[in-house]
Design a protein around this nucleic acid. Structure first.
Lengths: 353, 353
DNA sequence: TTGTATGCGTTATCAT
DNA sequence: ATGATAACGCATACAA
């Protein structure tokens, strides 16, 4: 892989390197004919500007780093696709890293991306993220950065989040309207703002209906952890009449355990998930879940980041809150009113606000 | 973001830049005490070597580029996790790009990664990849590159693939043993070697049992395309007694259409998928599918690539073929022999070879 | 309009 | 054992 450089072009055309350089950076005076000649022969020689050298001198890369906590669920890949759409359009190249839910790896990824002089960062935190100061310093150091979904709990940074409070409220309300009076909440990691917001919504709905809420279990986001939490509730003789889970995998895990114990879903225990995943329409019974605009989250985060990069001077941090919907399916229909299933995916009705 | 450079350290310690540089690259003579002093103060000043400058002069980055065709299914994310494990361990940073099933984007990604001087490439092709010459030139130009899963159909490159022929054969045999005599094959993109190998296995099994095979539909890898293919078969009055699909999403799509037409699965039409996905145990009926060692595929590809990078001189290309298994579930049990479901995920039995 | 010279941060080849 | 200096490929202030 021998690189063709501007020197080679200069030699061939008997011009100086600066002239060549100018041809590729329109802003300087250069005779149109020579520029065209240069561009032409550059193409013939199969020249491609070396981005490494460019980065070094411009201290800027036209690269955007994306940092996500995991890849197992389809959520983050979808967000990335959305982000990539708008970034590509603006000429940015996207570098993706995933942290395997480890804050150490996450830090490594962020530093590596910084070292590679990315122009900006799109990050969603691992569930074990504790070192708030690190993210605070990072943001204050001037790197354009937008947190999305799993955001850091400080004020003056840009964020794109889902309206977790609102939809947690509506999902809980839905269960209460079904007549559930002892709803357990399988929360995610306690450290995440997202978890706290969902908990608030859960409690607010109970407050509105003046019903005391059931157990709160801080399990994680995996099917396995959902299973464990459900096992624990059953073992401790604390079987609720409904489960509201922090995401679909943990909901599915809980559902499995209930089935194994011969407990009927939704008749004995109703279940609602969160962050609708592809499995939701296909579980038995089909899983009611809060659907999030994943794709749109990526797009919004990318737009916000670009604005921040290209408007660095007078840019003020902002938080964009996205809306969602509740797809009601069999897993939460305690008293079946409408037994006609939607043909596509078993969705009985959709709640929008 | 002011970078601390070796110059700053040199100034502070009244040493020359070369001495500082030496401290970070053990191979040169340097007095242990000064080295320790330098390392110490470097840490205090929060110095981090600038990888961009390093790349420029060394023409090497310790970065590995990964190019995958899509992110929608959990397959590639899993492979990436596996690859990342071994690459991290060896000190490589991983840069991931996804091509959205577009060869143009894929090419863009590859060139961008090359421009960023990645030391090697791990690539799996988009389903519309046609420009074989491009990949041939790429490989011949000396870039260490390992293709995985969706590989290019040329010889002297390194590949890590799944034994598609073998497992397509066994999956088909399973259906034949169930008594199916008119099996339709929903193949993937015709251009992929993987598709051709699965087709060969499909045909070989039929040959062994001296049964003529049913329709072959080259649909793609999405649920939507699976639906379309199934619709077409039904409309054309070509309803088979079994569907063997190129992957799970297309199998699920076909299953949905069958249900919508009131056709019973597996009684009237049995279904088997491929590349087991998370939904397989949760569909109704649970989907029989060929499981692949995704994680291991990533690990093997990464190992092969590192070997190729670090042993560039006498390295010979090789193809690693990985084994899998068939998880038999309700969707293909035409004559129910064993009605006791495995508690975990509805898997009735596992076929290994 | 074009050429010369300098620097981005680092490594490497000379000297000393 | 350490220092001076020339690269790596490119961009730009300044000179011509």
């Amino acid at each position: 892989m021998k690189y063709v450089t501007i020197k080679d072009i200069a030699k061939k055309l008997n011009l100086s390197v600066s002239t060549i350089s100018r041809a590729f950076n329109d802003k300087y005076d250069i005779k149109p004919e020579t520029r065209d000649l240069i561009l032409q022969t550059a193409k013939e020689m199969n020249y491609r500007p070396n981005p490494i050298a460019r980065k070094l001198i411009r201290q800027r890369s036209y690269n955007i780093g994306i940092v996500v906590p995991e890849f197992e669920n389809s959520f983050f890949p979808k967000v990335i696709i959305g982000a990539q759409e708008v970034l590509f359009e603006k000429g940015y190249q996207v570098l993706i890293t995933q942290s395997n839910e480890s804050e150490a790896v996450q830090r490594h990824n962020i530093e590596s991306l910084m070292d590679n002089m990315v122009d900006g960062l799109l990050v969603s935190l691992t569930s074990d993220s504790k070192d708030i100061e690190f993210y605070e310093r990072l943001s204050e150091s001037g790197v354009p950065i937008v947190f999305f979904n799993r955001v850091v709990d400080i004020d003056n940074v840009s964020k794109v989040v889902f309206d977790d409070f609102k939809w947690s409220f509506f999902a809980t309300e839905h269960l209460l309207k079904q007549g559930c009076r002892n709803i357990s909440f399988l929360a995610g990691q306690q450290s995440l703002p997202l978890t706290r917001n969902r908990l608030k919504g859960f409690k607010a709905a109970h407050a509105k209906y003046q019903v005391p809420h059931g157990n709160i279990e801080y399990c994680g986001f995996t099917m396995e952890e959902g299973r464990k939490a459900m096992e624990k509730l059953i073992q401790n003789n604390q079987l609720p009449d409904a489960i509201f889970a922090a995401n679909d995998p943990s909901a599915v895990g809980a559902m499995q355990v209930l089935k194994e114990y011969g407990i009927k879903v939704p008749e004995e225990v109703a279940i609602v998930g969160f962050t609708e995943s592809r499995v939701a329409p296909h579980t038995v019974p089909a899983l009611t879940s809060v659907a999030q605009p994943t794709h749109e989250m990526g797009r919004q985060a990318a737009k916000l980041l670009i604005e921040q990069i290209e408007n660095k001077e007078h840019f003020t941090h902002q938080t964009i809150t996205l809306n969602g919907k509740l797809n009601v399916r069999a897993s939460s229909e305690k008293y079946v009113v409408n037994n006609v299933r939607n043909k596509i995916n078993g969705t009985k009705r959709v709640i929008l606000r």
